[in-house]
Design a protein around this nucleic acid. Sequence first.
DNA 1: ATACCTACTTACAAAAATATCAGTACCCTG
DNA 2: CAGGGTACTGATATTTTTGTAAGTAGGTAT
Lengths: 127, 127
Amino acid sequence: MKKQYKSLYPRNVAVEQGRPLNYCGIRCCLEVLGGKWKLLIIAELFGGTRRYSVLKRAIPEISEKMLISSLQELEFHAIVVRKVVEAVPPQVEYSLSAYGQSVSPVLETLLGWGEGHISQYSDKIFN
Amino acid sequence: MKKQYKSLYPRNVAVEQGRPLNYCGIRCCLEVLGGKWKLLIIAELFGGTRRYSVLKRAIPEISEKMLISSLQELEFHAIVVRKVVEAVPPQVEYSLSAYGQSVSPVLETLLGWGEGHISQYSDKIFN
DNA sequence: ATACCTACTTACAAAAATATCAGTACCCTG
DNA sequence: CAGGGTACTGATATTTTTGTAAGTAGGTAT
């Protein structure tokens, strides 16, 4: 990984006791799990180890760039594990780390709330 | 409210059974609760009813525009309630609706995971 | 009379996120 | 030997999100 992970909290914010002012668990989640694709990728990986090309086909709307960069950030945060299989053509397998499994309740809760919201307010969402 | 809420899912996506292809609870959450400020505002409102100016002071880094527009979207989605108090100077109170209280587990779970993540990986986050 | 408070709105600018697309290296198949 | 598959990288463009700053209206305090 040449690419350096870039922390999302602004640099001009004061730092207190080792963390930026008002940095909290929610901001951390938004930083680590937020964005358009990461939770969807994680959800897919809860189904098991997936090769790059399989992930791509599982989430067809995602661009390769976003898929790769999301995977790289998740790997940086120790949530996913990247494993190269020496083969021709090359294979790279992505899976959730043991730590990555800890995202499960987050995913479940969000999914549950979201599905409930859709069923109550689909008219507002899909207007 | 003149401002029309704009759904975040792309219009060019095929719709199946009343919802866009691959639309799921997670995407719904990202749409309704996502963004930089909404969950923080909700967290603040879990502390009770707050006037606009009080919210502003509670989250000092937020711009007025973001505060207002976040509140408006949350109101649109029936999560917060806006109440005008006839007084001089004018007062507007924001609070969570009964439905808005249902976000509680989402908030708790995210906060919990995030705080845990910070304590394990603060070196990676605050590099 | 001037400044200031409230809860906003609006136009515009900047920044950040995401998309598009071409290119890479390797080998394999027809 | 052309074409295709794999897992990427990098430049650039577009879109989306967020920020800045000024303005509004009615009233109050100085």
